[in-house]
Design a protein around this nucleic acid. Structure first.
Lengths: 214, 214
DNA sequence: AGATCTGTGTAACTTAAGTCACGCAGGCCT
DNA sequence: AGGCCTGCGTGACTTAAGTTACACAGATCT
């Protein structure tokens, strides 16, 4: 891992920190669909995402999985940073939404770098901030909004992440929203009638392009 | 503010850090019901809670308030730490559930202390971790559980916080759970029939003492 | 081609939760 | 006492969402 490569994903860090990252970090690849972090798993290193997309879920005792947010290249998995500091286990599920490359940082480095590098402190704080914010958004959605709003919100997230062709089945969407296939089909049909989407087999095409309005 | 007093609420910090806390921190009192942090407000200092209880809400655009968790003495408001680092505004509402004393830390100290004091780094990380965890719990609850479970969970939180006499009206509980008074009254009646609570005017008595079982 | 599987559409029904309407009891004020 | 306000109880109804059941179309396999 060269400094140049790291700079692309994680701009603005101190020169010496890039070298540490390259020296201490361990590269690991995950294929689409693989589980990166399982609920209840111990974590021995912080996870920085170099390439790909990670999908974060909250898991229920009885099999439910609730999608919370995506992690982008250049971002870190806040849970991994949190857990790596004590002997606590992950309470979330992280999977590779696409083939992904991550950099694993031994937890022993975390505290050292915190004291040495201002940019690392900022990076960590920023990681927490944005993840915390995502959770707040998620709470807002499920506490205050109905299924139709939430579905729209969900679809917009996919479009932002992967483009206007959303390659999910209704069943997969239902799982992500902790709803049922029929409900999603119904709402989706309504959206199609409103001219927001075109429904295909195995995919949905987002055609509403006023990308801001409610 | 003497080191002795600070030690009581925040044990295990470095000696020099206590002095800094005493020197830089500014005491502020809030009376029960007062708003400590409003949604959209700028934050110029981190908030550490010395005495009392702070109640944290997620606020909706149209007036809804959704209770998320309590902050205890010795804990910090994670949002305030997050926000103080950039020009972002608070996205939550914090009120004093009881008369409270807080210590305000200028944001300029945050980064300095982060690099100098290991115990401060741990404190900050710990603050993030526990708050993040609270949000995850909250999400679990509203994503996977029905109102009756959520109400039970809510009441248990109150009992843990304030004891077996819960001094809330049904209306206030309904607001906290983003539900309606009638629904809460109904569920509460069911709980009374099951022998879990005794309902009084303006208060609820929790009498189920197997404090672990579902 | 025929058989099978997976994803989608839809009607009919159930259930949880929210809403409307009203009654009533206890506290408080005059 | 009489009047009034606030909090609670409850029945009747509406609505959102989950469930059951089935039909059908396109893809894949043989």
């Amino acid at each position: 891992m060269t400094t140049a490569q790291l700079t692309k994903s994680f701009p603005g860090l101190e020169r010496a920190l890039y070298e540490e990252l390259g020296k201490e970090g361990q590269l690991k690849e995950f294929r689409e669909g693989e589980i990166i972090l399982r609920k209840g798993q111990f974590i021995r290193s912080a996870v920085l995402l170099l390439e790909g997309t990670i999908k974060l879920y909250q898991e229920d005792e009885d099999g439910g999985e609730f999608f919370m947010y995506y992690i982008q290249p250049g971002e870190a998995c806040a849970v991994s940073m949190i857990c790596s500091h004590e002997q606590e286990t992950s309470s979330v599920l992280a999977t590779a939404a696409t083939d992904s490359t991550v950099l694993l940082i031994p937890l022993s480095c975390m505290d050292q770098w915190m004291s040495h590098y201002k940019s690392w402190r900022q990076f960590v704080i920023q990681a927490y901030r944005s993840r915390y914010q995502e959770l707040l958004n998620t709470i807002s959605e499920i506490a205050f909004r109905n299924m139709d709003d939430r579905l729209e919100f969900y679809l917009r997230k996919q479009v932002k992440q992967f483009g206007k062709i959303i390659r999910f089945t209704h069943q997969e969407i239902a799982n992500d929203l902790n709803s049922s296939r029929e409900v999603i089909s119904r709402l989706m049909k309504k959206m199609e009638n409103n001219g927001w989407v075109i429904l295909h087999r195995n995919s949905i095409e987002w055609i509403k392009d006023d990308f801001n309005a409610a």
